[in-house]
Amino acid sequence: MKKKKAYSTNFIIGAVITGIVLVMIIIGFIHTPYDITKMNSAVKLAPPSLKHLMGCDNFGRDIFSRVLKGMGNTFVIAFATVTIGAVCGVVIGAFTGFFGGWLDEVLMRINDVLFAFPSILLALVFVSIFGTGKYNVVAALGIAFIPSFARIVRGEFIKYREMDYVKSARLAGVSQIRIIFVHILPNTMTVLLSSIMIGFNNAVLAEAGMSYLGIGVQPPDASLGSMLSESQTYLFSAPWYAIFPGAMIILMVLGFSLLADGIKEK
């Protein structure tokens, strides 16, 4: 039997960081040390201590609890965004790449137009039409993410549709839908997985950015971006308020980048 190829160091470090992040998120969903909306003027902007591991914010809310919850919100939004972007992108990219023709032309021109806008700008436009809030941010970012996935998957399908084994499958009477999803799609998995990871990172950053601008997760709910935004007034008087949410964004992104690298190298 052949030995499985060893994972790279990058992959292992990425997996460990992502593991820690996921554990924190799960803890945040189950239980936080303090109610994240409960204010306590006695501990306003208190520095980190054993009682408040990451200190307290300007309302005296426990930052550690809010970071746990905020990571969960950020993660869920990023996850939903990437799911929408990847699923729609895969379907569009697969069909346009496989069939080509006028449908491909039309969809790819639309794609080019969407692609030309930065996704955050696109999302801003969307939110200004449909309003702020978690779900609108997910919808806006999700749609904004479709073009990049569609483009990558389309390229893969153009490459694979001319392969001899796809010809063989056609000549065995396999239906086109089955060829697309059963014969070709598994071949695109490596590329797809690493773009999902990269997409996830972009989504974390985009969510943070939008919440920072005040159009994402609405107070008193927490997200890493909104915490960062609220903390800027106290950057010098209470640096822990900004440092911990910021560090968590970096950890999440770093973990997934390393994972993505590891997958690409395999």
Binding site: M163, K167, R170, H183
Partner: peptide
């Protein structure tokens, strides 16, 4: 109609054995 025949009544083998099989299956 064609698909009823393809692989069933009429089969084809190509020149390139290196690329004629799906690498992930």
């Amino acid at each position: 109609t064609l698909r009823q025949y393809q692989g069933n009544e009429i089969s084809i083998v190509f020149q390139e054995p290196m690329t004629s099989l799906n690498p992930v299956k």
